[in-house]
């Protein structure tokens, strides 16, 4: 699972009001190189919840992202490279996503988060 997905995925349990961001427990991280697309990153930047993104990157063992970021940094090649790497190249392969409100655990196996709910959670 890419961190791009983590940045939109929210806990979907009935009654949960702040299901975002999901906390991350890591068992295994994989890195897959992809070509950088600067236009895509510039377009994506304003849609990213940066705090949650930096948290997720750190959880996956990548601490090179600044705690805060603003759009002026998009002119820096170095910044774009880090943004790209964390957003699209880091994958949570095995681990758990945890609802920030209820502590409900959603397993991630082979990179696929399982967000299926039990009957009493819908």
């Amino acid at each position: 699972m890419r961190l791009l997905t983590h940045n939109m995925l929210s806990s979907n349990i009935k009654g949960v009001s702040s299901g975002f961001p999901l906390r991350i427990e890591v068992e295994k991280v994989v890195e897959k190189q992809v070509e950088m697309n600067a236009d895509f990153l510039r377009n994506m930047f304003p849609k990213i919840e940066w705090k949650a993104f930096a948290y997720a990157a750190k959880a996956l063992g990548y601490s090179d992202l600044p705690e805060e970021a603003d759009s002026s940094q998009l002119n820096s090649q170095d910044f774009l490279q880090k943004f790209h790497h964390a957003l699209l190249e880091l994958h949570l392969e095995e681990g758990v996503l945890i609802c920030p409100e209820t502590g409900r655990r959603f397993p991630v196996n082979r990179g696929i988060p399982n967000m299926l709910l039990h009957e009493d959670e819908v």
Binding site: M1, R2, L4, T5, N7, M8, L9, S10, S11, N12, G19, F20, K32, V34, M44, K47, I48, E49, G111, I112, P113, N114, M115, L116, L117, V122
Partner: peptide, 20 residues
Amino acid sequence: VDITFLQCDIRNLRLRGEII
């Protein structure tokens, strides 16, 4: 091809923001 998969009932899908 690199695809992220997610197991979820579409009716219960909860996504933040305008990323898609």
